[in-house]
């Protein structure tokens, strides 16, 4: 079981879960499932010290005044890594977390050993439409993240539990701030992704209906030498739907980088 700390940075307290041992792996969660410690994290914790922060504004408390755009969170996590004195970090981000991780890596990758983006938001592929995550009721939105709607049961039960109402409502407000317009992307990001100079893995759910697989190809093309792995039987959140496979792909990728260097 992970331990939970409260860490204060940039005038906000956030919850940080840590578990496992090994090199540091910082996981930036998505906007819908959030910072739950999942089987996926247990798998990774067998090889790494997994560090799982809850994004500011998503835990039920009020969002800090400075939180308006994804680059704000990129800078926040750059500060957090420095504050926690993390080095040779394997940075992994899913969906919104992937967008933050990519933005962070274009700014300063000095503390990163590798970057893994799981169905990240942040890019726009013209002509490739997906489901609008702002158009449906909460349960439907959650189930739309999955290839197999039944695989969403546990997430639906946890996220929509009555005691989580504040976190849900406030989190949705922050997600709207960050990703409403332009929808789920930043037109300024694509032109700087070439600066990312750490080994990069793109993981894509073959059945992602929010951001279909052409998005994965676009990310691979945008980041030098990035590797793309497409997971069959997974939707927008492969780390939740196929935790063992997703963790396995990441562990293998990082191991190969060690051999190569």
């Amino acid at each position: 079981m992970p331990r939970t700390d409260t860490v204060r940075s940039n005038n906000i307290d956030i919850r940080v879960q840590r578990g496992g041992s090994g090199g540091p792996l910082l996981f930036l969660p998505d906007a819908h499932i959030g910072a739950a410690w999942l089987l996926f994290h247990d798998k990774l914790a067998q090889r790494f010290e997994v560090i799982l922060p809850e994004h500011p504004g998503y835990g039920g408390g009020d969002a800090p005044f400075w939180l308006e755009r994804v680059p704000d969170l990129a800078n926040f996590y750059l500060d957090l890594m420095a504050q926690l004195d993390l080095k040779r970090v394997h940075l992994v981000g899913a969906a919104l977390g992937g967008w933050i991780a990519a933005e962070l890596a274009t700014r300063n990758a000095a503390r990163l050993a590798s970057l893994t983006l799981i169905d990240p938001w942040g890019l726009r592929v013209d002509g490739v439409g997906g489901i609008d995550p702002f158009a449906s009721v909460d349960e439907r939105t959650l189930r739309d993240l999955f290839f197999d709607a039944r695989a969403a049961d546990a997430s639906v039960a946890r996220v929509l539990a009555p005691e989580g109402e504040d976190a849900l409502l406030k989190g949705k407000m922050v997600t709207a701030k960050l990703a409403w317009q332009p929808r789920l992307h930043d037109p300024q990001l694509a032109k700087w992704l070439h600066r990312i100079d750490v080994p990069t893995l793109i993981v894509w759910g073959k059945e992602d209906r929010l951001l279909p697989p052409p998005y994965g190809a676009a990310w691979q093309k945008a980041i030098p030498n990035a590797r793309l792995v497409t997971l069959v039987g997974a939707g927008h959140v492969p780390h939740v739907e196929e935790p063992a496979d997703t963790a396995g792909v990441i562990v293998d990728f990082i191991a190969q980088q060690r051999v190569a260097t």
Partner: peptide, 9 residues
């Protein structure tokens, strides 16, 4: 659509 009637924020 009640969701569209009440967008977050």
């Amino acid at each position: 659509n009640p969701v569209m009637m009440s967008p977050p924020g």
